[in-house]
Write a protein that binds this DNA or RNA. Structure first.
Lengths: 211, 211
DNA sequence: TTTTTTCTACTGGTTTTTAGGTATTTTTCG
DNA sequence: CGAAAAATACCTAAAAACCAGTAGAAAAAA
């Protein structure tokens, strides 16, 4: 029940997104759009000059990380409401931004309704996620379920060589080891990754950014 | 020099981006925006009904890969101009879309000027990249020098199943084919990728964002 | 200094892949 | 329609990977 409109700014490195949001929000009765910025530095200096109530903030920015920026803003201007509007779906990012004081997290494919709902919730002091984000938060994210196996030095080294298409024979020669030893490491790698063969092994290692 | 406006559609999974583009383009004299779609299926069925001159296409879509969609569109409607508007900066993706018939590739943080310039160029039959994309293309990133091989439908399908760790036997059963046939496809895949075994195959396919 | 982990190497056997082909049928496209 | 591309299937044989164990030596951790 506030009589004054929320003085709102958008921070996103894509001019197209800024335009889109301006368009989507210009008919909202409780929102007054007062600016759009493409990087962290610009919004920080703007905050020195003007009062801002609500910031729609992207995670991916050219100069600073959106998570860090959120923390910086909240530290300096406690009363500003920060809503994250991002494409990033990593659980860790969502959690971190909320810890950094954000009042919500929406994916960019959220509907206008969701955005409205989250703004309303944030104004009341709550925290609000878009539907998909709730899902991300609820399931303990596959990446964390299949714990990345702890590999020994040797195993990492041999995994690399396997990925280069080398046979146990060739790897043995390269490392001055018996090919039978390499076979053992191979076996252990398959076991640790819980896969049946190298095809799956390499896929899994790739998904866990091991290369 | 055309008297009629370009009948233009936007395909992007983010409603916000669609809105933004609509806004940015609505004052363009040679463009008539006739639709916005959030997935591949919708635009394909729309194309059945209406004449479209220009498609602004995102790579990341919920149902299909934008690269494949581009190829599909160009195959069926040769005269449609497809401009890619994406956030993905991988060289392989840019190269692949151009090979698939796109007339240009812009990052989403391109300016309106760049977009205008690319549309003009595309209408003349040329190919146009935004500034940053040109940079991406100019540095030949070591392991992507090798042109991404053109795979047939079957080959893609079998590559997927190999990546899931399935044996020729199992794949044969799944597709109701002789395992010997799968072996042939396997052999062809290795040849096309110029690799010696599946380990290298999966690595290569991963580097080329085929999954 | 124990204890545990890692690295090494082996036996023996099975399954799968890879490397050369060839060849027919089916689809697609000009 | 005719040609080219794709998909199908086969042969032979070698090479490599995978499975299920065991086990001693070296290195690291408790």
């Amino acid at each position: 029940m506030q009589q004054n409109k929320l003085r709102t700014v958008i921070v996103d490195d894509h001019p197209i997104v800024i335009e889109g949001l301006k368009n989507l929000l210009k008919n909202e009765s409780n929102i007054e759009l007062i600016g759009g910025f493409q990087n962290g530095a610009d919004i920080m200096s703007y905050l020195e000059l003007e009062r801002v109530d609500l910031i729609l903030l992207d995670i991916t920015l050219p100069d600073v990380n959106g998570m860090d920026l959120c923390l910086k803003i909240k530290k300096k201007y406690r009363s500003v409401i920060v809503l994250i509007l991002s494409n990033r779906t990593e659980r860790s990012i969502v959690v971190q931004t909320i810890q950094n004081g954000a009042s919500g997290y929406l994916l960019k494919n959220s509907s206008l309704d969701e955005l409205r709902r989250c703004i309303a919730e944030a104004v009341k002091g709550g925290i609000c996620y878009s539907k998909e984000v709730t899902e991300i938060l609820s399931r303990p994210s596959r990446n964390e379920l299949l714990a990345a196996p702890r590999l020994t030095k040797r195993e990492k080294q041999i995994l690399e060589l396997i990925a280069q298409g080398k046979t146990s024979q060739a790897i043995g020669e390269e490392l001055f080891l018996s090919p039978l030893t390499i076979d053992t490491h191979r076996k252990n790698l398959l076991q640790k990754f819980q896969v049946k063969n190298v095809a799956e092994l390499i896929m899994s290692a790739n998904q866990q950014n091991l290369f």
